[in-house]
């Protein structure tokens, strides 16, 4: 709980942003007016008899960064994992309502989950490279999905993905060495490269920087800023500074409900809901 409250000590001040972001942010229209990538309608979710999400309705705009914030156990991660149906692995789950990806229901009966997960990339809280070489890590997704033909094309795709993940210069001379030899921050960027290699439309990030030091965190945040021009990004974070720094829109979850969603700048400076304000100013009990 203490960890949850910590970041909020800065909340009364305006979070520091890059000047470009600021100019852009003030020009942002409300999320509903943009092309939507992911849309949840009255989505509820249960683990056994335990309700984790309660009628979430949410529009995630395309090619923007949307942050999900809230105290631990508020359902933000569950929501994230509902989008690519990663929760399917857990026995005894149940849902109501629907989530659509570009207008196509994620939960319709004949949905190909494998195809779905391919078009939705995911980056996890703890970096989880496979115990293989750097090259093989990035090549894994394209290989199982048979996205490329031949070594040359694969080489090209691996390089492109690593470049986009801002890792290429650091690893280009040791592509065949084990991914486990990389630093924590590099591993996480490798995982991002691995996700990018299957050309997803949406990238889900579940607290991607929570296990990293400040320098590595900054690199990840810069990367997110770069990637949003091409990808729709949803990021779960409990670090409100981070949400303020990287996201265009922010959704605040509390006790399985979506309390408020809006432009990040507006939500942090002028929240509509009292609970949101209580959370971001640290008056949370």
């Amino acid at each position: 709980m203490n960890a949850e409250l910590q970041p909020s000590t800065m909340a009364p001040h305006r979070p520091s942003r890059s000047p470009g972001a600021e100019a852009e942010a003030s020009a942002l229209p409300p999320a509903r007016e943009l092309e939507s990538a992911v849309e949840a309608t009255d989505f509820s979710f249960w683990y056994g008899s335990n309700q984790a999400l309660d009628s979430i309705s949410l529009t995630v705009p395309a090619r923007k960064v949307t942050a999900l914030i809230g105290p631990s156990g508020c359902g933000k991660s569950t929501f994230l994992r509902s989008i690519n149906r990663m929760n399917d692995l857990i026995p005894g789950i149940r849902h109501e309502g629907d989530i659509t990806l570009h207008g196509d229901s994620v939960y319709r009966n004949d949905r190909d989950v494998v195809q779905l997960r391919k078009s939705v990339g995911m980056v996890f809280q703890k970096s989880n490279p496979f115990p293989k070489s750097i090259y093989q890590n990035v090549a894994y997704g394209p290989k199982v999905n048979r996205l490329v033909r031949g070594r040359a094309e694969m080489d090209e795709l691996v390089e492109r993905s690593l470049r986009r993940a801002a890792l290429w210069d650091e690893v280009k001379d040791r592509l065949d060495s084990s991914a486990l030899g990389l630093s924590g921050g590099q591993q996480q960027r490798l995982c991002i490269a691995r996700a990018l290699a299957v050309s997803p439309e949406v990238i889900l990030m579940d607290e991607p920087a929570s296990a990293l030091d400040p320098v590595a965190t900054q690199k990840i945040e810069e990367l997110i800023y770069e990637l949003k021009h091409e990808y729709t990004i949803l990021i779960v974070t409990h670090n409100m500074q981070q949400a303020a720094r990287v996201s265009d829109y922010t959704a605040f979850f509390y006790m399985g409900r979506l309390i408020e969603m809006g432009r990040t700048q507006q939500l942090f400076t002028n929240p509509h809901e009292e609970q949101t304000e209580a959370y971001i100013t640290g008056r949370f009990g």
């Binding site: 690519n84 990663m86 692995l89 494998v114 195809q115 997960r117 391919k118 078009s119 939705v120 990339g121 995911m122 996890f124 703890k126 989880n128 490279p129 496979f130 894994y140 997704g141 199982v144 999905n145 995982c191 691995r194 996700a195 299957v198």
Partner: peptide, 13 residues
């Protein structure tokens, strides 16, 4: 579990 999830999230069956 994160190893399995990484593979699934990349579109592995």
């Amino acid at each position: 579990r994160d190893q399995r999830e990484a593979a699934l999230a990349l579109g592995a069956t």
